[in-house]
């Protein structure tokens, strides 16, 4: 399971990096979304992969080792929402740049 997850993070990250290096704004936004999936999974897995151990403590006397690590989960939850906000901002900047320069190239002009 760990190997599958690690490889998947690698593939998502690699695809994201490839897209971020592309010259068209839509490719870059797609790449950023893929990168955010990869990074969110990576941060989440810092708490290690645990099955059926959701951090919901119904009684007071518990052993913390019986639960998945809640801290990376809380951080990733924040990251998901902020990721949405930054996607929205990037999309609008992309559209504005397209309207002002007439091209969807990241440099604002078609390269020769």
């Amino acid at each position: 399971m760990e190997a599958v997850l690690a490889l998947s993070i690698g593939v998502l990250f690699g695809s994201g990096v490839w897209l971020v290096l592309r010259p068209r704004t839509f490719q870059v936004i797609t790449g950023l979304l893929l990168l955010s999936y990869a990074v969110n999974l990576f941060i989440f897995l810092m708490g290690r992969a645990k099955l059926n151990q959701a951090p919901i403590t119904l009684t007071e006397n518990i052993d913390p080792a019986q639960f998945a690590d809640p801290l990376p989960q809380a951080l990733v939850l924040t990251a998901i929402v902020i990721g949405f906000a930054s996607t929205a901002l990037y999309l609008v900047v992309l559209l504005a740049s397209r309207g002002l320069t007439g091209t969807d190239h990241v440099d604002g002009k078609e390269s020769a």
Partner: peptide
């Protein structure tokens, strides 16, 4: 760019596997 993407992807996979095990 493909080479860069491939290397970073591989590095990220290795790093996450190393952390998880």
């Amino acid at each position: 760019d493909l080479a860069v993407a491939f290397i970073t992807g591989l590095g990220m996979a290795a790093l996450s596997y190393w952390v998880m095990i």
